[in-house]
Nucleic acid binder design. Structure first.
Lengths: 232, 232
DNA sequence: CCTGCGCATTGATCCAGGTCAATGCGCAGG
DNA sequence: CCTGCGCATTGACCTGGATCAATGCGCAGG
């Protein structure tokens, strides 16, 4: 897709209705474009924070710790806005899961422009609050849940974001590998695989090929997700 | 302290300079006040999201999972603004570590009023971004670090927030119990205690009484925190 | 200053999940 | 349709931290 098309998609999604042409142009002037093949890191934000808009495809935000350990902090899909921190105690990399196209900005410039337009900061605030809520939920998962609860939780969250109805169940087409899932849940690929096995044996899901998962029993999964107020 | 005093502290800290009297009054009209003894949950946000300002003392935001498991999502000190989510998949409780006083608002009302005043949403956005950054760092800690790295990390973060210089070291007076630390780091009190022991034996810190910790070697602690680019 | 309650420490054992090691199999490229 | 590479699965074993169990000790209340 061309830059104007992608920028159009950004402004439709993020800029409030009725945003002035002048503001549009100001954003367009500082916007950068990147397309990335699956597995690539489309840009480096080493020096300073960046704000990225996922125009198409999907990405993961990975944090790097010592010893080559990686933690997936979040996954993103088309239409999501991601704040990518500059290198600090841990380095963060935004990485493409599938081929994808991004519009991105130096965070400082982005916020400066956002202040111009009433409603724009609100939109951003709402999205950041959503990201915070997701991150808190992840904190609970990583701090206090066992492997099966983590996977059940993960599948339910993914269902909310990319699930589709499909005769009697919910179909997920996961763009991330088992390794990504493991790095997101603080587990190993082997443990993730074994838990998929257990949930399959329990009749809660079916796996079809590497990326497709059919959730057969959302209630059953919720019951195994360790939420409050679910049947033990 | 009286409500006007506390509200004054809120407006000094959160409302931008030059905020109109009218806005002050609008905030004051919807503000609620709570004081809590150590261990108490000062208010319930069961029905809807709440925004709390910690006027004095310190708090923890606790998430409850099934089986009585608790995860401390964040700690807060005087001057902090906390968003307390309504009951959902997990219930959240704001809980006083020391005696403390709070000003709080229903989140919806708070945001509605915030939009009135230029600069106010910016202030809130900045604080939410900071909270998100902290939560992401916690995600790395919980997902990919061992017990010792978690504790070293915790102590360094606390030092940034409440550390004080003290002949040749940094002195922490931790308002939270070992249980709180454990519930924050996804460990048990026993493991936290053992790791305090190891760091003490390594000459990196001294403990004095139950709450005081003297950090003797920040570099050494950072080296054991599992950060990127630290001496292995 | 004493005293006892409750948090913290220390020790012994267990086990969920990590690690190491094959083997299976989906899928892109021919 | 075939084929081989690389992800996924499965199995055997090991270990860091949980669990269970005393014991120590800081600190509030007398």
């Amino acid at each position: 897709m061309t830059f104007p098309d992608l920028f159009e998609r950004f402004s439709m999604t993020i800029l409030p209705l009725g945003t002035s042409d002048a503001t549009h142009l100001r954003f367009q002037a500082v916007a950068r474009y990147a397309s990335a093949r699956a597995g690539d890191a489309p840009f480096t934000g080493n020096g300073s924070d960046q704000i990225a808009f996922v125009a198409s495809g999907s990405t993961k935000l990975v944090a790097h710790a010592s010893g080559g350990r990686e933690q997936v902090v979040a996954f993103h899909f088309a239409g999501d806005l991601v704040s990518v921190p500059a290198r600090a105690a841990h380095a963060y990399t935004l990485c493409a899961l599938e081929d994808c196209e991004l519009i991105y900005f130096p965070a400082e410039e982005f916020y400066k422009l956002a202040r111009f337009e009433a409603g724009m900061v609100d939109e951003v605030l709402e999205r950041v609050m959503k990201a915070l809520a997701r991150c808190r939920e992840k904190t609970i998962t990583l701090g206090r849940k066992n492997a099966q609860e983590r996977l059940a939780n993960f599948l339910l969250t993914m269902d909310e974001r990319i699930g589709a109805d499909n005769d009697g169940g919910r179909l997920l087409d996961l763009p991330m590998s088992r390794r990504d899932v493991a790095d997101s849940l603080g587990l190993t690929i082997e443990t993730v695989s074994r838990q998929f096995g257990e949930l399959r044996d329990a009749g809660l899901l079916e796996t079809m090929g590497r990326s497709k998962v059919m959730l057969l029993d959302l209630q059953g999964l919720a019951a195994r997700a360790g939420h409050l107020f679910e049947p033990a």
